[in-house]
């Protein structure tokens, strides 16, 4: 029994079927995806992870490096900075986006007039051009004459922050843009999950005299946990891998204030041609994400309700 074991499905009533048939049926479902996934994703991926122990400039002979890449990481200042920035981004972005998307989904699951319009609207930042998102966000937070700072100075703030042009505030500006862009996306997953909650549960609770909060706490929230689990895992992974949004908003700057791990990986591989070292940084990222995912799997067994 592996430590990762998920909650087992109920025992099948037809116990006569042989193990082999069951296995064959299961794999017949998985294979169409697995074959393609294995060849086109997993193999290149494993190859790149092996590169973490090699030196390769992308052109000449690959040579063995052992743990040299990892020991180099300890001396790499930009790695330390980008690791810290990435963790800060994850710690802020994950809870904020989850709360915002759940709130939106609950709000828009009600029979409101114009509901379809609002849903489309909230999904919009996700499909809009990233350049437009970055421009509009930077415009709202424009240092001298932006709307946000105008309001702040009206409220009597003496030196309003310079947001993305300031070392201290740039990361927060990026996080806010990320929450704003991502909440409509995750709202859709919550909306779809809300449709899967059988109405009978609410009817029974109403008979028992449960109030709105109790229904939310004891029916909605537990029934949403598979979706919450999915969102928390995906959002954590996506936040660890953040790249595009930072590149268009700040390019990792000012200085290295918003330099995140994937930017460092990209620069290492494509500006310095150290593919082995880039892979070793990716390996660290991978181990961190897997570690957190395993913890989330553990938590899932405790709080995810699958029935």
């Amino acid at each position: 029994m592996s430590i990762l074991s998920l909650k087992p499905t109920n025992t099948h009533p037809s116990k006569r079927r042989s193990q082999f048939t069951k296995l064959a049926i299961a794999y017949s479902f998985i294979l169409p995806n697995l074959i393609g996934f294995l060849i086109f994703t997993l193999i290149p991926m494993v190859f790149s992870l092996i590169l973490a122990f090699m030196n390769w400039d992308g052109a000449n002979q690959i040579s063995w490096a052992g743990l040299e890449n990892f020991s180099q990481m300890l001396r790499d200042e930009t790695f330390r900075i980008s690791l810290g920035n990435t963790i800060a981004f994850v710690a802020l972005n994950v809870p904020l986006t989850m709360a915002a998307s759940l709130g939106l989904a609950l709000l828009l699951n009600q029979p409101l007039r114009g509901r379809n319009f609002f849903r489309t609207t909230f999904f919009f930042p996700y499909v809009a051009s990233l350049v437009a998102v970055a421009v509009v966000w930077n415009m709202l937070f424009f240092p001298s004459a932006g709307p946000v700072n105008s309001v702040l100075s009206m409220l009597g703030v003496q030196n309003p922050p310079r947001w993305s042009a300031s070392v201290d505030w740039a990361m927060l500006t990026v996080v806010m843009a990320s929450v704003w862009r991502g909440m409509g996306y995750y709202m859709i997953i919550y909306l779809a999950a809300l449709q899967n909650i059988p109405t009978i549960l609410y009817e029974a609770a109403a008979v028992d005299g449960a109030d709105t909060w109790q229904k939310f706490r004891y029916i909605t929230l537990p029934m949403l946990t598979p979706a919450t689990f999915f969102i928390s895992v995906m959002l954590t992974i996506a936040s660890f891998k953040v790249f595009d949004l930072v590149m268009v908003m700040t390019g990792g700057g000012p200085g290295r204030a918003t330099n995140v791990l994937v930017i460092h990986i990209f620069n290492t591989a494509f500006k310095e041609f150290r593919f082995g070292y880039a892979s070793s940084i990716a390996m660290v990222l991978f181990v961190m994400v897997i570690g957190i995912t395993v913890i989330q799997f553990y938590m899932e067994r405790r709080w995810v309700n699958y029935q």
């Binding site: 592996s2 990762l4 074991s5 998920l6 087992p8 499905t9 099948h12 069951k22 296995l23 049926i25 299961a26 794999y27 479902f29 998985i30 697995l34 996934f37 086109f40 994703t41 997993l42 193999i43 290149p44 991926m45 190859f47 790149s48 992870l49 590169l51 992308g58 895992v233 995906m234 992974i237 660890f240 891998k241 790249f243 994937v262 990986i265 990209f266 591989a269 494509f270 593919f275 880039a278 892979s279 990716a282 990222l285 991978f286 994400v289 897997i290 995912t293 395993v294 799997f297």
Partner: peptide
């Protein structure tokens, strides 16, 4: 919905693969 040996490990490999940035394995790919 089906039970078969290796299911959880295979699933972890799937989820784990999402964690690796594409920038790293695009050259091997």
């Amino acid at each position: 919905k089906l039970k078969f040996p290796g299911r959880d490990w295979l699933f972890l490999a799937y989820v784990g693969s999402i964690a690796i940035p594409w920038q790293v394995y695009m050259v091997p790919q």
